[in-house]
Design a protein around this nucleic acid. Structure first.
Lengths: 340, 340
DNA sequence: CTATTTAATGCAACCGGTTGCATGTCAAGT
DNA sequence: ACTTGACATGCAACCGGTTGCATTAAATAG
């Protein structure tokens, strides 16, 4: 037998106040149904006994748990904490509690977590879900689901559009006189990677720049280091990396090789996860992850209240954060081919 | 009325299997009480209906929720995510769900969160709690509480001892020939700060080094930048900073001032939150936060099972992670005063 | 002054499980 | 053959609230 709390129950309060438990229940959930006099009496008794309504019992009879689940691929990936924090804080404002799940980037694990939470939450926020569309749709048919960075038709979703920021980055580099740049990619299946790559290509085309795409499956510091040489070999003067870590790895390798940044070569990252805490501080594309977390929660709560809203597609723009790893292209003046 | 799920209930399974709900209940919680035949029948029926026991109903009657709450001061502080991740993953192994709370460093908020969670969790993990000892003791008297980085007698706690790593750092600097160093502090009330400061002083005394302590209320990149000049002014050749961010700020300022690291000056951080992703990569003291999260969860689950264990004080050692911001003291060879 | 509303409260069923105790069955013990 | 016990299952109360409907008293209408 668990050391059951001997918290006072609704019956004890009822007895102390000289009413039935229905009235006590109403005093807490719909006080306007009772006379002021009675409500006062009940609150006094409750206060005196230290009564707090039992969340579980209430959830059982109403089906309303006041909980939501937030599932992310990896809590320790610096992209997510600000999102988690914002979601949690937004939930808090509406008196919701949030369960946190870490899927470890594994669809099976994600599914297990959803199952574990399913009985005690009113809805889910799935961030960068690794589930198949079919699985997501199946879950969404049981309870409200809001997706972040995953675009499934028919399911409410928040999308962080790094394309806008990446386009700004390309424009920024063009303004600085760069003519030839490289995009250092990320994981093959990544939606963000595709989005960023396409944005680089499109903007470059519009601005008449030359782009080389270098594939790079594992986005990480070491990967950035390894790939630095091939980036240089392209003859480009600037690079946009799939993420900050990769960019940072490139910077480290450049420094070791005596390539000056931004004097010899310009680098821009993506996701702004390192903040300004590096040297030289990294020019990068903002991530909006906190905004996404907040928006997801508001959307979910909206769905709870207005039982109709679905299929919202909410896109968050990003922008370029210019710091110190980008500068004028080397020999810009000396080249005769400055156009426009 | 909420769109109550029409999940099958225990009664439907009972009817389908031709038994009473007691048997169905037992089939799921204590199958050894039933004949294999009956269990098979019940599972078949359950499977066929897609029955999953209702967590809430079960929690109501058993008082066992299978949930724990994890409250941290700031999810977005890079020290915590690995801890959160480890705790969550450990909880998962024992089929517990974890609620995440963000106290925003505010005792009031922390108290509110605890209250909100209290009804639906079996225990709490409070990380770097901002509550008073009395408040913590009060909560611990109601349900199991495990503290991380907070030392309250009588309450089970996990403490990360940065002193060991800091002592290693001082020894490392001494070995490299440094004679005079500075400790750049952190927040006034911080237990970690006091611990680190004392460790620096003690080790320095033992090794015959000279230490200057520079106070610095707000640990942050900018603070590190601002304080760099005064660090240099002490005439020291090495500094240990309260945390990585402060160290990184100092590095940035040094770079701007043309002070070479580690050639002219050695810097060590604390908490290893930036990993190796900076250049030059930062020598720092490991944080053990993941280990702390894991240990806290195991301890809590232990307490659930063995209703006796309390007042454990579990200390985690840290160690120095040597990277590229420390090197031989300038002019070590030229100085005639090399001792030992 | 009686008929009809309206407001406040009580009654009891219900949410979906768990569990102590009673009952029934069948095999082993004597 | 008769008791004893072990084992499997059922019965019904209970966990702590919520809520539709009934009841009663007070207010308003006719």
């Amino acid at each position: 037998m668990p050391p059951r709390q001997n918290r006072p129950t609704i019956n004890q309060v009822a007895a102390a106040a000289g009413v039935t438990k229905s009235s006590v229940s109403r005093a807490f959930s719909r006080p306007e149904m009772l006379s002021e006099e009675t409500v006062r009496k009940i609150f006094a008794a409750a206060e005196q006994l230290g009564y707090v309504p039992n969340h579980t019992a209430r959830a059982l009879s109403t089906g309303r748990h006041g909980n939501i689940a937030l599932i992310v691929p990896d809590v320790a990936n610096p992209f997510f904490p600000p999102l988690i924090r914002a979601a949690q804080s937004e939930a808090d404002r509406s008196d919701y509690c949030v369960f946190l799940g870490n899927s470890d980037e594994d669809p099976k694990q994600e599914d297990r977590l959803i199952g574990r939470f399913a009985g005690q939450v009113e809805g889910f926020v799935l961030v960068s879900s690794r589930l198949s569309d079919a699985q997501i749709i199946a879950h969404a048919s049981r309870r409200p689901v809001v997706l972040i960075n995953r675009d499934v038709k028919g399911i409410s979703r928040i999308l962080i559009d790094s394309a806008t920021g990446v386009a700004e980055a390309v424009a920024h580099l063009a303004n600085l006189g760069h003519k030839k740049l490289v995009y250092v990619g990320g994981p093959h299946g990544s939606w963000s990677n595709k989005q960023r790559r396409n944005a680089v290509r499109r903007s470059a085309r519009e601005l008449g720049l030359d782009v080389t795409v270098i594939a790079n499956e594992f986005a990480a510091f070491e990967a950035g280091r390894r790939i630095a040489a091939s980036v240089l070999a392209t003859g480009a003067t600037a690079a946009i990396a799939f993420d900050d870590l990769t960019a940072q790895g490139m910077l480290a390798e450049f420094a070791d090789q005596g390539v000056a940044v931004p004097a010899d070569f310009a680098v821009v990252g993506c996701d702004d996860v390192l903040g300004a805490a590096t040297y030289p501080s990294l020019t990068t594309v903002s991530n909006r992850s906190a905004a996404a977390g907040k928006a997801a929660l508001n959307l979910l709560i909206d769905i709870f209240q207005n039982h109709a809203i679905r299929d919202v597609r909410y896109v968050l723009d990003t922008s370029l954060v210019i710091r110190k790893t980008t500068g004028p292209a080397r020999n810009t003046r000396l080249n005769g081919d400055v156009q426009s």
